[in-house]
Design a protein around this nucleic acid. Structure first.
Lengths: 198, 198, 198, 198
DNA sequence: CATGAATGAGTGTTCATTCAT
DNA sequence: CATGAATGAACACTCATTCAT
């Protein structure tokens, strides 16, 4: 929610830095008014450029927004995987809790990128921006986490893990709507509601 | 998600019927591309009118969309209250389960109206469209339901009921994203995950 | 300038009265925002009608405005002739002074009609509204008055009476721009400037 | 009245030249049909542009027209001051005659700009376009000229100099309505009528 | 007589996009 | 790399006009 620094690694060239400013500005603008409502002139102004200059970095509005979405999703997946790797040896309940904490931390850190990728999904977004591979990977990770937790009995069984996963996802992403939320607080509240406490 | 039946009672005059067609078309369009992305020409075409004719029925795009949102929210509140009235004498857990079922049924019946009111909220919508009374009433109903369930011990205590309410809301509204979902199935899945089973 | 009752004789039928209300409203609206800026819906509303109803009384916006202009010009000519008839026997200076007083009184009485006909002229007005006969008659009367005064030596000679007439006209019509002006005061001021005092 | 040469000094950049073409076209269009009746598409076409391109140079129709009016008024004031400076040492009658000649020359040179600023005033023009400083300066200059002439006895006394000034103004501006008028001819005619002859 | 409802051409304005500089 | 300038298609909205009721 807060003004994020963005997503990328430290870039070297001036062109790369401008590109990053544009992606950040696009994320903020899209989070504020949606993909359809965001204007290239607004994004350019927020990045300290004139409108036409965007086209040196991106071929079209769609490409700019798709790139921004993809980077947000990729980073969000990276943070999740990092967190899960650290708890690979623990039991299913602990891994699920770690996933929840990681997702909420990602939501918080990624700022506008997360707001866009996770809250709005790809609804208003151009078809080209589906990048299904990343999306499948992300979703798959969560389906696995949930199914393992069900198998271990720490999460209610008897229901399709994909349904359970979506409900969990909806609950987590609702945090983006609240001002001043903290990842840790929301994670512990959610785990308590699901009786997931260690 | 599917083409909505709409919201209103059978109207008599020709003008009323056109107005309803416009509201239905607006709901569908906004659900598809967001308020900013929806175009009056698209809405008019879907309602079988020419663009300019909209202005005989609504003073502006904002008024059209705000009216649609308000009717959706009002109807959704009505359905919730109706369901709660029928279980007023039961215990807090049963009332919460009834609320969940009612909300999901409303989501399903209201079609595009709900997709808009509940998923996007009034985020992108003009300030005039906040209709805060309805929104407060709706939110208040849910805070009460959740707080009662916490007090009765059927829902995890120790956390702000408003946080719990938002998590619950997020989980329920996530159903709109899935194709072919059923209100009853989702309700039972959610209740099971929360260990709310009567 | 002030809200005028209009121009016409007492009418009998209800249709005639509606017609008059429309002409009055048109005069006011055109005086306020110009012929191009005046809208039929505004005029209709000011006359207590719905827009479409205008077409029962006038075939088009142009016809409505042209009729209003013509009535204003005709009445203004009538008032001038009336005043001149009363001083037909006096000398040229007295007749010119009477004309000035009559014109300024007409400007004052005719209200919005005069504002339109005399100030804006037929500049913005449709070609059909030129009604050249009336205009020629009006202009002709003034050329004569001025030429007679020049011949009699009470108005500076040595210049084309049509030029003198236009300068005089411009001076008189400038009164419409001043708030709270009186016909008598302006007439005496103008006569004094021209050294026309009896 | 005829196609105006415009107002500005020779500009260098391409944008400045386009801007000037737009202002000239706007002056012509507004002189022809009034501010409300003038259309941006007409103005753009007359300037050899497409409608939307206007917005690169002016933020709105109002700004375009207001700018045009202001430049016209400013230039007209400049021409007046220039002429008055050249006769600062002469008597009040000579100064008034110089003012009349200067005003009529300005009317003639400024073409459509003058037609608009002086004939229509800022009546139909948005509030933002009043530029009251310029207007006050222009009006003040004339009040002074007239009052001095009255005090010196060369113009009839016994009447409010502001009234005399407005009558004078109306007479001078009436020249705009006549085809083929010359500033010198009109000035001498007016001065003769007012017995101002040096 | 008058209205309710609709139309189509027009308005001012925005915006993604292009391209010479 | 970036800008200044322009375009054309879209947009929300207005308005004169029509016509069944």
């Amino acid at each position: 929610m807060a003004g994020a620094t963005g997503v990328g690694a430290p870039s070297t060239s001036k062109g790369d830095r401008t590109r990053r400013r544009l992606l950040d500005a696009a994320a903020a603008e899209v989070a504020r008014v949606g993909a359809a409502g965001a204007s290239l002139s607004g994004i350019a102004a927020a990045a300290g450029l004139k409108t036409g200059s965007i086209y040196f970095h991106f071929a079209s509005k769609d490409e700019l927004i798709a790139t921004m979405l993809e980077e947000g999703l990729r980073e969000s997946l990276r943070l999740l995987d990092e967190a899960l790797a650290a708890v690979a040896d623990l039991d299913a309940g602990a891994r699920l809790r770690a996933g929840v904490r990681a997702h909420l931390r990602a939501l918080h850190e990624l700022g506008d990128y997360a707001a866009v990728v996770l809250a709005q999904g790809a609804a208003e977004v151009p078809a080209a921006a589906a990048f299904p591979r990343l999306r499948r990977a992300h979703v798959g990770r969560w389906t696995e986490l949930v199914a393992d937790a069900q198998a271990a009995g720490v999460l209610a069984g008897g229901l399709d893990p994909r349904d359970a996963r979506d409900l969990l996802f909806g609950a987590m992403n609702s945090a983006l709507g609240r001002p001043g939320w903290s990842p840790e607080g929301t994670a512990s509240a959610l785990c308590r509601m699901l009786r997931l406490d260690g």
